[in-house]
Nucleic acid binder design. Structure first.
Lengths: 205, 205
DNA sequence: TTTTCAATCCCTGAAAAACAGGATATTTAC
DNA sequence: GTAAATATCCTGTTTTTCAGGGATTGAAAA
């Protein structure tokens, strides 16, 4: 029984690379590929793969959302996240959304085969390098922000001072200061610069 | 006469992808690949390709620097920059350093062949998408930063204060302050928050 | 060769943010 | 119904950043 593989990635080189690596594998059947989330969902209405290798960055939708959607509709499919270069902060979200594993894009052929084999056994596969990096990002766990905090965060990134924000939001400057304090502590940031950086990395702004 | 191709990229999937796409091309001879700048330079001491496809991000050295070095030593080699996903701000620098063209990593087979053919005729090849994106970054005229400014920018984003940076870089706080002022004015930013935000948007950090 | 640019250093004073350590209504969730 | 979370406000002090100058050195470009 061959394992049916499907790939979603917007980079033809990655698709071609994986295709050529898996080409002559006896236990692997390449059933197709998609360049975006839309085509992927259309394809799944016709064919059900065993494993989907899914890029985290897609043009029309994030792999994180697509993962959730696919698992919801087709719970038997195993998903392996394909991480682009440094965006590992999102992979834990992908795993939360039902992915069974993830690979870095510099993965070698044996690694890919290992990943497919592992997830087919209903186990979780995490690439070594990626695991290291996730440990790092786990520590700086993404905080939950309140509506107001997000608002202040965005205004901050646009360069508003506390006073200007207080005028804009019709509150006192001390209130803004409090939100700011909360933001700094939630992100474990030392100052504005690192706060904005972390927040952009974690896609809050 | 076959065109001899060499590739430098730290992602095996990209290498495999290009290899498989060029495999059966009669006019193309694949003479090898390297995963980093060091191996690339070693290889060039033994074999001279006609065209190098070169990733902008390498583990040991930036493609931008490697490009300069290779062109200096081997002026006959044509270099095509391979851009990772969104880092187009560096591509113009790569062209400045002697590259003859660039491709996005989602390039299709005909595009790659077209690029190789074009640069072999001593013409410049710019992929469509990439050209568009370069226009965009041109419009929101991304400032050119100096080595030191980038360094300071990165440290800022990590939350270092001027004093801490001065200790780290062995200069006085006033020097850091000057770099900071230049950054603010180059980005037209009102304060640190908007500076970091703009810099991340423009992929400097 | 002159000029420009990068990197370094210095100064003053004002503005803004960070830090500490509170308080009080109002929702929301259990 | 009570506890937790949210949003609001307060008074200070200390630290950092910002704005505006000016100046020197060395390297690279014109």
């Amino acid at each position: 029984m061959k394992t049916r593989i499907f790939i979603v990635d917007d980079h033809s080189m990655v698709i071609e690379g994986i295709r050529s690596m898996l080409q002559n594998e006896p236990h692997i059947e390449w059933i197709g590929h998609a360049n975006d989330a839309g085509s992927c969902l259309s394809f799944l209405q016709l064919h059900i793969p065993d494993v989907i290798l899914m890029d985290i960055n897609l043009p029309d939708k994030s792999g994180i959302d697509l993962c959730k959607e696919v698992i919801l509709k087709y719970p038997t499919i195993k998903i392996v996240g394909l991480s682009s270069f440094n965006q590992l902060s999102f992979i834990s979200k992908m795993l939360d959304n039902g992915a069974s594993g993830y690979l870095l894009k510099n993965a070698s052929k044996p690694e890919i085969l290992q990943a497919i084999e592992t997830v087919m056994k209903r186990k979780r596969y995490l690439s070594l390098e990626a695991e290291e990096m996730i440990k790092k990002t786990d520590q700086e766990d993404a905080p939950t922000l309140t509506r107001r905090e997000i608002e202040v965060l965005k205004l901050m990134s646009e360069g508003y001072t506390n006073y200007e924000m207080s005028e804009k939001l019709f509150v006192s400057t001390t209130t803004i200061d409090t939100h700011r304090k909360h933001l700094l502590s939630k992100f474990n940031a030392k100052n504005t610069a690192s706060l904005i950086w972390l927040a952009t990395q974690m896609k809050y702004i």
